[in-house]
């Protein structure tokens, strides 16, 4: 069976390790040793600690905002490429959009620091134009800076699935809608948007879930008030040497975003059914 090698690989390096994470989250760290007695202590600690809950809340908020911003900004671009660009030039546009995504992630995040920083591009531009006298200090080292940077990083992930879904729409359906007297906007809302929904949902999932696991952007852009749950997970594993608590935090974060994503899918299905 040909499927065996990739399946076995994914089972050994994904499914099995995930089971180990679940197991570890019910154990505790006892100095250098891991105490393997089953306990809910890690989860209790997360629940009782205002720090972890705050980080979790902030992370879910940031992921949600990033998803909203990314998908909203991306949809018109995908729409433009699918409906307004000549077929021969479409793949060139897609190629142009994907290029920045493949180039050194760390350096891209760092460059946002250069753009938004105290002596950065935005500030020197505004000062140079005489719009402001003093550089703005609220651009960098806060949650907004994290959201902007992540929205930039995930842009192609949102554009591609929406574009693919838009490409699949039978153009004669749009003509039919127009022929039956619907206007441009109503045709979009009642035909194009519902038909592109699978792409939109894919875009939401592919942005919302992975953003929870990024610790680079909050570390570089977030300052003290912009740290997220992924920073805490990283600290637990690599600095505090508390793998069980880190495992529990990672699972809680993962379950939170997955649950929210599922609710979104269910609500979306309901909305689609009402459209028919």
């Amino acid at each position: 069976m040909l499927i065996a090698p990739p399946l076995v690989y994914a089972l050994l390096l994904l499914a099995l390790p995930l089971c180990a994470v679940v197991l570890f989250s019910f154990w505790t760290q006892d100095f250098m040793e891991v105490d393997t007695a089953f306990t809910l202590q890690n989860y209790r600690e997360i629940w009782d600690s205002p720090v972890y809950l705050l980080l979790l809340q902030r992370s879910v908020f940031v992921s949600g905002m990033v998803t909203l911003v990314t998908v909203t900004l991306a949809y018109p671009v995908a729409y433009y490429i699918s409906f307004n660009v000549a077929p021969a030039k479409k793949s060139m546009w897609i190629f142009l959009i994907t290029i920045p995504f493949w180039t050194s992630y760390l350096i891209r995040v760092f460059l946002w620091k250069v753009i938004l920083g105290y002596n950065g591009v935005v500030n020197s531009g505004l000062v140079g134009l005489g719009i402001i006298d003093e550089p703005l200090s609220f651009l960098l080292y806060n949650v907004n800076a994290v959201i902007i940077t992540l929205a930039h990083a995930f842009a192609p992930f949102a554009i591609l699935p929406i574009f693919v879904a838009l490409e699949k729409i039978d153009r004669s359906l749009l003509e039919a809608s127009r022929d039956l007297g619907e206007g441009r906007i109503r045709t979009f809302l009642r035909v194009t948007l519902p038909l592109s929904m699978p792409g939109l949902v894919a875009a939401v999932l592919i942005v919302f879930i992975p953003t929870i696991g990024d610790y680079v952007t909050p570390e570089l852009m977030g300052g003290a008030g912009g740290k997220l749950i992924a920073n805490m997970i990283q600290t637990q594993f690599l600095q505090l040497n508390n793998a069980p608590l880190g495992a529990a935090l990672a699972l809680v974060a993962m379950v939170c975003v997955t649950a929210i994503a599922l609710v979104f899918i269910v609500l979306n299905r309901r909305w689609l059914r009402r459209q028919v």
């Binding site: 399946l7 994904l14 995930l18 180990a20 994470v21 891991v34 592919i206 992975p210 990024d214 974060a253």
Partner: peptide, 28 residues
């Protein structure tokens, strides 16, 4: 189902992959 499972790392937060492999490699 199998093909979907193999594609899973695409939507999984990378930190989850990192953490789970670190646990298996170092601790187990």
């Amino acid at each position: 189902g199998i093909l979907g499972f193999v594609m899973l790392p695409l939507v999984l937060p990378e930190i989850i992959i990192a953490v789970s492999l670190l646990i298996v490699l170092r601790q187990v």
